[in-house]
Structure formats: structure tokens, C-alpha cells
Design a protein around this nucleic acid. Sequence first.
DNA 1: GACTTAAGAGTCAGAGCGACTATTAACATG
DNA 2: CATGTTAATAGTCGCTCTGACTCTTAAGTC
Lengths: 243, 243
Amino acid sequence: MGNTSTGYDKYAYEPFAVTADLAVLTVRSGALHVLLVERGQDPYAGHWALPGGFVEPRESAETAARRELAEETGLDDVTGLHLEQLRTYSEPDRDPRMRVVSVAFAALLPDAPEPRAGSDAARAAWLPYHPAPALAFDHERILADAHDRVGAKLEYTGLATSFCPPEFTLGELRHVYEAVWGTSLDGPNFRRKVLATPGFVEPVPGAARLTRGRGKPAAVYRAGPAATLHPPLLRPAREGRPA
Amino acid sequence: MGNTSTGYDKYAYEPFAVTADLAVLTVRSGALHVLLVERGQDPYAGHWALPGGFVEPRESAETAARRELAEETGLDDVTGLHLEQLRTYSEPDRDPRMRVVSVAFAALLPDAPEPRAGSDAARAAWLPYHPAPALAFDHERILADAHDRVGAKLEYTGLATSFCPPEFTLGELRHVYEAVWGTSLDGPNFRRKVLATPGFVEPVPGAARLTRGRGKPAAVYRAGPAATLHPPLLRPAREGRPA
DNA sequence: GACTTAAGAGTCAGAGCGACTATTAACATG
DNA sequence: CATGTTAATAGTCGCTCTGACTCTTAAGTC
């Protein structure tokens, strides 16, 4: 669309295939993990790849992404999950077989249910983000873009709560930041900043304090209504700054 | 791509057309403007629309966007301009004629050359962003998304310099922020923050001070090497915060 | 020559932040 | 069961940055 005068005919151009690919991230035992599937076919047979698949004729890319996510993870309540459109990868030769344009999404999961092997008999698994294995096609780049985007959005949105179950402690929330940013944060300061940001989290009224393993039991919070954080929760400045 | 076991065949699905649409923004006499074209054909004949066009078989979406930008603006040095991929719009019925997936870009221009009427005889013009006219298809949404994205990126990247000519004054830079954010900023504080952010701008060594109309002549700066701003230049907090 | 406009220097009080200490309440281990 | 470990939470202190503001300088305008 957007062409303003010339009419066009349906097959004037070689058709494009459109796929939705997913970088599904979760925090598991303190470390960032990615959902990957093993390819059974050439090209890249035996390589790990991001889950994804074709956009059907009557679907939007987001709908297709959500459908693929449900198929790959076996979750049934995919409706509430946060899906973030990353960008679209359209280099002519990114798939050696044909012209494929891929709309990439990042999905954030709270818990990490074991993936089903998928309707197609491929292997699927949660793999740690560090070290990430070699991926098929340009999926390493997509995954890196997903990580960058999520890391940046943690600063100025309440996105981190998408990695947490509906009710969580501030310690769990802090672990999300630490896992994604690869840093460690000071506990008291983190708490002070989170609670000083209106709408970020709110206490769950009648909830008993939770004890997760050791340590003093923690108060229980849930995600607040704020879409953007004021003030933002900036990550610690590094010395070797990216120019 | 990303389907892991089933082979696919080139025409297994109804083909998609892929277009690149552009939200071309500039700051002109202190106000934000958008480059729009008037549609000559149905649907939406007579409506304004974002410039754009088909992605050719051997092009990436970004290459197509750059080509369209050159065609619509008549600029020849489109290579240096900042093109920011926004997102992809893929709702099945966004174009009533056929299935069109649109990859949207935002482009930021320093000066505002009058647009050429395009190879197709449509009318093209810079229109003020406030008030924006009704647009064809879902282009109003694309334009709003572009504005949101650019506004946010001004905070933590050096993107504002993309709206300025190669050499500029701090007053011009401030006008960019004011036009995009729709606020007014305190001059001395803005200067202090910009100069305190390493790599944002650097003084042009032998340049004479510039006088743009009235007022005391200003020192001349150019864009610095920093990709991200530390600390960021946050926009003033509004009272009625978007929840 | 008086007025207007914008650049740029400088001031000051308060908010926010990083670093740090201390206390409390759970589990772990012998 | 006594002791050590871990994590949550309270609180302190000094430094930095910010927003609001004033003042001066150097241009154009009337």
C-alpha cells in the first residue's frame, strides 16, 4: 500500500512468504533462558533455531506468533502474555530456499514449563542465554536484538513483571533485572526505587509473606497499572561505554 | 523460516505483498511536519497517505524505504539519513484490495526541501503534525507510532541531531526537542545537560558563531559519537500520567 | 536610543542515588 | 538446639543532578 497512482496486480511481483519468529525468554533459577527448537531438515539440519512458522492467510503476524507460542510451549493461556514486536528481517538471501520475510517477536514468560516437542517432531528445549549456541539463519541476530530491546525496556517500562508470576516478591523482581542485565543490584536501593515509582508494583492486601527457600519471608506484590516508569530504573553505567 | 520439519512449497499459501511505508518527519519553523502524498485512486482517493511502495524482489525493506524516500523527496544523498524501522503492520484487512504487509519506517530530515510530485503524478506536501489530517488505511496509527517512538528515542539517544543540519546551535537542537515533545524547555538547563552528556555534541573548532535572526550569536556544534546518552535527557514529567 | 530576543554564565535548594550498616526472620548443619 | 547462612527490610550519609531562577551579553527591530 501507499503506492499512489499505479494500480497493481496480484502477481506483478514474485510473492513473499511471511513468517513469525519468536524469541521466548524466561528467567529460570536466576539465569536468562531461551526457548529453542532443533531443526530436523536442511538447511541448518541439527542446528538450534528460534520457534516460528508461517503467517496464515487470514492471520496477522501477532496472531500467528501467539499460535506458534501456544503450540511450542503447550501453554493454554497464551492470551495474557506479553508479546513485543521486535522488527522485521527482510534481507533477500536470509533463507537460501526462497524469499522469506520474518516478523520477529519477543515473548516473556514467568514460569518455564517444559516445552512440548511440537506438532512437528522437532526437539525443543530451554537453553541458557549465556552461552547461547550457534543458531540457524540470522536467528542469532534476532535473539541479540530481542535481548537488547528487553534490556532497554526494563529501564522505562514495567515489563519486568511479565517475567514474574501474578504475585511475586521484590527479590524475584530484582532477579529479573539482574538476569537480563547481567549485573548485580543492591537490594535496599532496588527496593527503594521500585516502591518510589508510582504504579510499578502494588502490595497484595491480604497476602501472607512468602518464603522462597531461605531468608526472611518477603512481602508479596503484583504488577501495578503504570505502563511507563517515572522515574525510570536506569541500569548502572558501565565504564566501557558503547560509543 | 523457522518451521522446523515440514517442507514448504513456494505457493502453498496465498502470497503476501510487502510494502515499505515511511513517516518522514522534519522540524520546520519550530513545528513538527510530516511528508504526505495525496492518493489519486481508490481506495481512499483524495485522502492523504504516507509515502511508500512495494519491496522489489531483490531488495530488503530498508533498501526499498530508502529508494522511496529518494523518489518522494528528490534528495540525492539519502544514504546518510537516519531510517528507523518502526514495526510491521499485518492485519489481514488493512488494505481492502489484497493481503498487504507493510514494514513501516520513520525518517528524520534536517532541512525540508519541497517534495517533488513523485514519478506517479500524485501531490506531495509537508503538512504540520498538529493538526494532522485524516489519513488513508491505517496510516494514522503508523504516524502516531512513529511520533511515539521518536519522542522516546530523543530521551536516550542522540537521535535529535538527525533533525539538524551537520552544524547546528544548541538553540536549534532544543527546538527539535520542543517540537517533538510539544513542551517548552528551559534554555540554560538544556544547555547544561547536553554539554554534560559525553559524546552527544562536540564544538566545531574553527567555526564562527552563528546568528540566526535575532539574539546573541550562538556557538556551533556537530553531532558527537555517542549512540546512547548517559545520563538520558528525560522529558518533563506530566501530571496526568498515561496509566 | 529603547525594546525585544536569544545565548550563555551562574546560583541555590531539594530530590535522587550509590554505598553502606544494622536488624530481623527464615533455613541449614552439625 | 546452637550456630552459621541467607535474604528482606530499615535506615544513614554524602554526593550529584535537577528544576527554577536571575543576570549579563550581543545581536536585530522599531
